[in-house]
């Protein structure tokens, strides 16, 4: 491990000031991504600023029925929080279906949104990777890419965004709250994740030293019956091959409200807007579901080993819609 210096801060402005002042520094939350990458020399900060003492761990009610998750709230605390489970089950489920209990006890929700891709070449410092070393090329394009993305890819990078929580937040139109040297910002979650384009090294619009202080969940009655479905090779402790976050209401056989986001398929947590357009107001039938899935994956680009994800993605969307519609009917 590269020599690093470490300090622990207890207030937000010192945290921001310390990191902003040194381009070689980074925040350290649960460390479950950061320390891993440090040990394999993928991230090479000179200084780690430990933010675990910052008072950002609460889950608070917002006026109007929304909820604010503190940036440093642990994945497990948010997942088990009664209000989260009641009003936003997909958030709780996305967390519980991620990582392992030990990791969830360590990891923060801000860290979860900020986690780096699992692409094997990103983690192999000897391999070409535009995200880790811009301009070197993308080894995954013709390589071992079974887990890689089919949506939102570019010629420069096809790495899947690994966060499950991010997918649920995308379906909910959550807002990421930050504070940096230039003050506070509220960033809609869709803008918080950037597509790789020609700059895959840039994943977020944050400036250096900008801290994620919280995540706001808007009031959204339909979310109380939302779900998170995750398909993977083994039953637990694995990232998604395909995941679907879904909230839907059906009135008189027609889809009155639909929120659909996809994980495992795209370079960012993916709002399935094309599918939503097909579904909005449409009859809640198998035909609509299939058309929606086809519409969403129409632009998908396969890269060898991951070609199956297109079909798997469609079928998982149809499965999620069918099951949710059945539930709505019986409710």
């Amino acid at each position: 491990m590269r020599p690093i210096s470490y300090s622990r801060v207890s207030d937000v402005s010192t945290a921001i000031g310390t990191v902003a002042a040194d381009p070689g520094s980074a925040f350290l939350a649960g460390g479950t991504t950061q320390v891993d990458l440090l040990r394999i020399y993928v991230e090479q900060p000179r200084r780690l600023v430990d933010i675990n003492d910052l008072p950002l761990k609460q889950v608070e009610e917002l006026p109007g029925g929304g909820l604010r998750l503190g940036g440093l709230a642990r994945m497990s605390d948010v997942a088990e929080h009664p209000t989260v489970r009641q009003r936003y089950p997909m958030v709780s489920e996305s967390l519980l279906l991620g990582a392992s209990p030990q990791l969830r006890h360590m990891a923060s929700v801000a860290g979860n949104l900020m986690q780096r891709v699992r692409c094997t070449y990103f983690r192999d410092t000897e391999a070409a990777c535009n995200k880790r070393a811009p301009g070197t090329g993308c080894s995954a394009m013709d390589g071992v890419n079974r887990g890689h993305a089919v949506l939102g890819t570019s010629d420069c990078c096809i790495a899947t965004h690994p966060s499950d929580l991010g997918v649920a937040l995308m379906a909910l139109d959550a807002v990421v709250r930050t504070e940096g040297p230039a003050g506070q910002r509220s960033i809609p979650i869709d803008d918080f994740y950037l597509l790789p384009g020609t700059t895959p090294e840039r994943e977020h619009p944050l400036t250096h030293g900008e801290l994620v202080t919280g995540i706001d969940l808007p009031p959204l009655p339909v979310a109380a019956r939302s779900r998170y479905i995750k398909i993977r090779d083994r039953e637990s402790y694995e990232f998604a091959l395909v995941a679907v976050a879904i909230a839907m209401s059906v009135v008189d056989g027609r889809i009155a409200e639909i929120r659909l986001a996809l994980g495992g398929l795209a370079t960012k947590p993916w709002r399935a807007r094309a599918a939503e357009r097909v579904l909005d107001g449409a009859p809640a039938t198998a035909d609509s579901f299939t058309r929606a899935a086809e519409a969403e994956l129409a632009g998908a680009v396969p890269h060898g080993m991951n070609a199956f994800k297109i079909e798997l993605g469609k079928r998982t969307i149809v499965r999620a819609l069918t099951e949710t519609a059945q539930r709505e009917e019986s409710a």
């Binding site: 699992r118 094997t120 983690r123 090779d233 083994r234 039953e235 637990s236 402790y237 694995e238």
Partner: peptide, 12 residues
């Protein structure tokens, strides 16, 4: 790595 080389876990 054990994250990428999958072996069964208890849930399996």
């Amino acid at each position: 790595s054990l994250g990428d080389y999958l072996v069964p876990v208890n849930a399996d």
